[in-house]
């Protein structure tokens, strides 16, 4: 599995340290988000300043949160922008509203081809994280349906 993963890996390009705890979390099969001690809320993606209240980095901590949420919306990708995903199409690209109160994008897996093409996934569907160790260094988080 390790050297054969051909699709893009997370490659931080602005400041790798900022999002490192998120990826350390996925490696442990856990979901970690930044939490702002000033306004008392989670947010995503990782930043050096709170996008809600502009609190500085010193007021931002990392917390493990339940790896659960609901499908806020989704699209079924038939023509991927990235060639590496061509063989997988059609696949589901969703916006997940986490129970912890932030949103994250991810693939919803575990649907049959018929379900994918028939748009069987419904909005507000409860989902939970599935952690996929794609290389020795990187673990990606995907999502699967659970009973509400």
């Amino acid at each position: 599995m390790t050297s054969e993963y051909k699709k893009p890996l997370p490659r931080p390009t602005i400041n790798p340290e900022v999002s490192q705890p998120f990826w350390e979390g996925t490696k442990k099969h856990e979901l970690w988000l930044q939490y702002c001690l000033n306004h008392n809320g989670h947010f995503f993606y990782p930043r050096e300043v709170c996008p809600v209240c502009l609190a500085p980095q010193e007021r931002l901590v990392w917390q493990q949160v339940p790896a659960k949420g609901r499908v806020h919306s989704y699209t079924t990708v038939y023509q991927p922008a990235l060639p590496a995903f061509a063989e997988e199409a059609p696949f589901i690209h969703a916006l997940i509203e986490l129970d912890a109160g932030a949103r994250i994008v991810g693939n919803v897996v575990g649907l049959s081809r018929e379900e994918v093409e028939g748009n069987a996934l419904e909005l507000n569907q409860p989902v939970e994280a599935v952690f996929e160790d794609v290389t020795d260094e990187w673990t990606l988080v995907k999502w699967q349906r659970v009973d509400g």
Binding site: P10, P12, T13, I14, P46, V77, P80, L82, V105, L140
Partner: peptide
């Protein structure tokens, strides 16, 4: 950017 760090891994 940081948003695309995740975007690329999910195929967009």
């Amino acid at each position: 950017g940081i948003a695309t760090e995740l975007d690329a891994t999910v195929g967009t």
